[in-house]
Design a protein around this nucleic acid. Structure first.
Lengths: 117, 117
DNA sequence: ATAATATATGAGTAAATACACATATTGGTG
DNA sequence: CACCAATATGTGTATTTACTCATATATTAT
């Protein structure tokens, strides 16, 4: 395996590791629907303020989310809405591969998610 | 956010975390082309035997790879070839989002990868 | 200017993860 | 059977990562 391949795989791994966290996915899920202020994210995810800020920093530094300040509020949105398609595809893969369906199952990032794209 | 959503995101995160490792991606990259014995994986990835076995175990337990024994050799292949499409899509996302292209750039899981599907 | 709300950050900690080294297991061959 | 090659596993360790708590910064309102 040549170096360039190895390097690219390393970048890809970094990206997947960044979104491979349940709390960050929660946040992405929430702001994927529509941009949200930090307080809204805290409410909808049920995570502590500090924890949300912690993960938002990681998402910011990975250019996964963008910010916009309006007054005292800072609104977060996806840097690239394609991410939702990607996560949908991943959800589909996991769904089809594991075959696990619990009662009340909800496929991650379901169809309504993409309605606006 | 309801519990079922949260649970699904947790599963999705687990999956992404599993494939979000450079060495495991290397392995997936190698066996994605065609099934490979452990020795072949070791050679092509330049990882130690122990390390390859370590990661293969993780990939096995996540049902990402399958095994087939032929004599003393154990051949690994992808449990679900869709995974390559998924990773291709992720590579495309990273490529388009970051815009980083180095000399000798090779897009992860490029087109030839999917020729057989 | 003070207080209150919204958000970010630094330091410390606990847990998860990747890894190396030594050893075990399995199968093939003389 | 003894020996060798292929692969797996157990244990210890170092690094990374997620998290909490306390505190800082920024904005608005009084």
């Amino acid at each position: 395996m040549i170096q360039a391949e190895s390097d690219m795989l390393k970048k890809l791994a970094k990206f997947m590791k960044t979104i491979g966290d349940a709390n960050r996915l929660k946040i992405i899920w929430v702001i994927g629907k529509e941009e949200r202020s930090v307080s809204e994210i805290i409410n909808e995810t049920d995570l502590s303020q500090t924890l949300v800020s912690f993960h938002l920093k990681i998402l910011r530094e990975s250019d996964i989310v963008e910010t916009k300040r309006i007054g005292a509020f800072i609104y977060y949105s996806l840097g690239n809405p394609e991410l939702i398609d990607l996560l949908s595809a991943c959800g589909e893969y996991v769904y089809r591969t594991t075959g696990e369906i619990e009662p009340g199952f909800i496929r991650p990032f379901p169809l309504w998610f993409n309605e606006k794209f």
